[in-house]
Structures are given as structure tokens and as C-alpha cells.
């Protein structure tokens, strides 16, 4: 089945990909982000926060976006 996958790692990615039926959010994360820490990403399915065991459905829109982007002036 196909889903739309958005990921900022590497060259950046926003395209339809083919995944196996029954793939969970966690499985997709492990396959696509590999050694990344899930805490460093906001994982959403169809623009809503997703649990790790959520099973993806055909046509889902999945995004892994960075969290805790913060800056500070020098003091």
C-alpha cells in the first residue's frame, strides 16, 4: 500500500512510498530513521499525533518533524 511520507532527515523527503500492509508507526520510524531518537521527533499521521503501535492505512500522511527547536542569545 502507499502512504505519503514526510521526513526532514538526509536530503529531506516528501513523497509517496510503498509499505507493507500492517506496518505500524514504530516500524516505519525504525526503518526510515534508524538510529534516531523518537523523542527528537513529532510523529503525526494525517496531521494528528500518533502512537507507536498505530497501524498505517493506505493513503495516510505520515510526518516525522523535529522538536525542541530553540535558540538563546549569549549571556
Amino acid at each position: 500500500m502507499k502512504i505519503l511520507f514526510i521526513n526532514n532527515d538526509g536530503a529531506g523527503f516528501a513523497d509517496h512510498i510503498e509499505i507493507a500492509d500492517g506496518t505500524t508507526v514504530e516500524q516505519l520510524f525504525r526503518k526510515r530513521v534508524n538510529e534516531g531518537n523518537p523523542a527528537d521527533y513529532l510523529i503525526r499521521v494525517n496531521r494528528q499525533p500518533a502512537s507507536s503501535d498505530q497501524v498505517l492505512q493506505p493513503g495516510d500522511r505520515v510526518s516525522f518533524t523535529p522538536t525542541k527547536i530553540e535558540g538563546a542569545g549569549r549571556t
Binding site: 514526510i6 526532514n8 536530503a11 535558540g71
Partner: peptide, 29 residues
């Protein structure tokens, strides 16, 4: 005055909006 912290949901919304506008991540992130 000395810090800035993005809202995580807003970052995700920004990504979605930019993708919908036809841009690639290398153009906006």
C-alpha cells in the same frame, strides 16, 4: 528577550503547509 522556542505542532504544520505548496524540505527546512 534572550530566548526563542518553536512550538512543535507549529513546526509540523509548517512542514505540511510547505509540502502542500509544492516545496521540498531542502527549500524550507
Amino acid at each position: 528577550p534572550v530566548t526563542v522556542a518553536f512550538d512543535d505542532d507549529a513546526v509540523a504544520e509548517f512542514f505540511d503547509a510547505q509540502i502542500d505548496a509544492g516545496r521540498r524540505p531542502e527549500q524550507f527546512a
